[in-house]
């Protein structure tokens, strides 16, 4: 795993993360806001396209489970948490930037 120091968003990441058999995805949102609805829709589309049958999405509404925001160290929403075999990847935002989501999902190499 490369360290944070040697990597910024613009640099290519080197060894590709190993791909899991089933992608476990968790989407943290705060209520039914346009952003959270958009994020969920974007995620759904993407998963259907690339991971059909190999993913699970769990949506957590922090308004209902505020303690989870603390426990899971959530600050920004929406946050998508991807459990990869070797690490946990987090993506924030409404997932409208598909390329970046794919990088996070270890489905696409950048550069």
């Amino acid at each position: 795993m490369p360290t944070a120091k040697t990597r910024t968003r613009t640099q290519p990441r080197k060894p590709a993360p190993r791909k899991p058999a089933v992608w476990k995805l968790r989407l943290y949102v705060a209520g039914q806001t346009p952003k959270s609805i958009r994020a969920f829709a974007n995620l759904k589309v993407l998963c259907e396209e690339r991971l059909k049958g190999r993913y699970q999405i769990e949506v957590i509404d922090l308004l209902e489970h505020p303690h989870m925001a603390r426990g899971d160290q959530i600050v920004a929403v929406p946050t998508l948490e991807i459990k990869l075999p070797q690490s946990v990847q987090r993506i924030i935002g409404d997932l409208s930037n598909t390329d970046r989501v794919l990088v996070g999902l270890a489905l696409q190499q950048v550069g």
């Binding site: 209520g31 994020a39 925001a69 600050v75 920004a76 935002g93 997932l95």
Partner: peptide, 17 residues
């Protein structure tokens, strides 16, 4: 290094906390 931005976000998570 865990954070990748993919669009608009807000700090509701922090607000809620």
């Amino acid at each position: 290094h865990e954070i990748e931005e993919t669009g608009e976000y807000d700090l509701d998570g922090l607000f809620i906390r």
